Amino acid sequence: MAQKKNSDRIVWREFGSQDAALERGQPDRPPAQHDLRIQCSRKGRGGKTVTIITGFQHRPETLASLCKKLKARCGSGGTVKDDTIEIQGDHRQTLLEALKGLGYGAKLSGG
Rank of each mutant, 00 (worst) to 15 (best):
Y104T: 05
Q26Y: 06
I10C: 03
I53R: 00
R37Y: 04
C67V: 01
F15G: 08
L36K: 01
D8C: 04
A64T: 14
K69W: 03
I52D: 05
Q3F: 09
T94D: 03
A64I: 05
T84R: 15
L63N: 00
Q33H: 09
A98D: 05
H91E: 03
A72T: 15
L102S: 09
T49E: 15
T79E: 08
R24N: 11
G78I: 00
K81R: 15
A98S: 05
A98F: 00
K68D: 07
R42Y: 06
G75H: 11
G25H: 04
D90A: 14
G111T: 09
G77E: 06
A21L: 14
Q39E: 13
L108M: 14
P60M: 08
D8I: 02
S7Q: 14
D35H: 12
D82S: 13
G46A: 13
L22N: 10
Q93W: 08
L63R: 01
W12Y: 10
N6S: 13
H58L: 15
E97F: 13
A98E: 09
I38T: 03
L66V: 01
K5M: 12
D82R: 10
Q39T: 06
I85W: 03
L66W: 01
L96G: 04
G75I: 07
K68L: 14
R42N: 07
I53W: 01
T94V: 13
G110D: 11
Q33T: 04
G105K: 09
Q3H: 07
Q26S: 03
G47M: 10
L36G: 01
R42Q: 14
H34A: 12
K5E: 13
G89N: 02
S7I: 07
I38L: 08
L96R: 12
T84A: 15
E61F: 02
Q33W: 08
E61D: 15
K5C: 05
R59Q: 14
R37V: 02
L95A: 02
D83A: 15
S109F: 11
H34I: 11
T54Y: 04
G110T: 03
L66F: 04
K100F: 05
G103M: 06
G111F: 10
Q57D: 13
K48G: 11
I85G: 00
R29I: 04
D19K: 12
A64M: 09
G44F: 06
G77M: 08
I85N: 02
I10K: 10
F56N: 00
A20L: 12
L70F: 00
R45Y: 12
L66M: 05
R37H: 11
